[in-house]
Design a binder for these strands. Sequence first.
DNA 1: ATTGAATGAATGGGCATTCATTCACCCAAA
DNA 2: TTTGGGTGAATGAATGCCCATTCATTCAAT
Lengths: 205, 205
Amino acid sequence: MAEADRQRDSPKRERILQGALRAFAKKGFYNTRVSEIASEAGVADGTIYLYFKNKDDLLISLFEDRMEWVIERLTTELQAVEGGVLEKLRAFVGLHFQLAIENPDLAEFITVELRQSAKFVKEYENPKFADYLKILQFLIEEGQRGGELRTDLDSRLVSRALFGALDEVLLQLTLARTPPKDVTEETGQISRMIIDGLVHRDEHT
Amino acid sequence: MAEADRQRDSPKRERILQGALRAFAKKGFYNTRVSEIASEAGVADGTIYLYFKNKDDLLISLFEDRMEWVIERLTTELQAVEGGVLEKLRAFVGLHFQLAIENPDLAEFITVELRQSAKFVKEYENPKFADYLKILQFLIEEGQRGGELRTDLDSRLVSRALFGALDEVLLQLTLARTPPKDVTEETGQISRMIIDGLVHRDEHT
DNA sequence: ATTGAATGAATGGGCATTCATTCACCCAAA
DNA sequence: TTTGGGTGAATGAATGCCCATTCATTCAAT
């Protein structure tokens, strides 16, 4: 096949994706030269076009590939959580941050590039991001059915809001390159805020 | 002065900013040609360089200018709100959305471009965005001092999370160009979620 | 007539993409 | 075992487009 994407699993393809991730995280999509990606990946400029149709395609492929991976890890780890929906929600928050800390380039890439790219690279719809949101949404709905969560809030709205909250906090953490000293404390606070709200309550839950 | 920014208030300068806003909202910073901004503003390409040093400077000036305006409106309208901090929080959510709906181009520009631009245009720090966050932060702290809000959450963390939640929900609203049919319902849900949390409580608040 | 603002065609550099060439590997024939 | 040539991957210099920025010239106002 003379087509512009060789076998989906090829060490070279993966090297290119990795190089692109590093480069995009460091300088952003529009400020990254294809030749920089190539040298980061240790291949020739032209080689990239054997695996991807063009720069846009490389960006989108990177999204899909990495998001798929994130979704898979999140799903499995979430299934292993003992306890009710509240416990799972807390775990979700923790996992979201943990994944980001373990993969700083990926975190930076996703938090910073997701929006722009989603909108301007030839109207790409980003189905994987939708999948990610669905995990949250279903978790909320499970809790609503089970009686743990209030039912007067739209699950799609809530899941979006939650994602936004996590994402924004993560953005700061990521950009500041803060050493993750007290992440547990932060995720704890966020979970409490999400679950119990901001309002002050008398001493008894 | 041969300097590249004429009087800060000039109808022509404002026309350029307006043209840039429309263009950036529609196609994003990196996909917008300076000549497009010029024609959108009804000036010659070169004229833009009489008012702004270059394209980056135009972007940043646009941010500063519009954020300043937003902050001012938000501050005044918030001061006019009767009631305690909880009421003000609800008002904040409502105002955030209302401003966005009244200025869709501005909303799209800010939600989509803020992150990227902030990071990649010559390491610009975006002080105005920090100011915006501060409004929220001080509101939270006021509530904590007054006893209406719980004190075990860091006000900076909370304000970021809140902003993120609003921003993400707004992003969808903005991009989908959804007719704002039930915005009141949405803002109501968000306020309730923020203040009272997701957890189900027995019938008595 | 002088001054400063505005114009927009021309310039030049940057960069994605191409493609003629090289390279590495395999196998068939001698 | 050697050789040759066929195949597809990889290379990277060359191409050509695109567009931000400039500046010689024109215009308007006083």
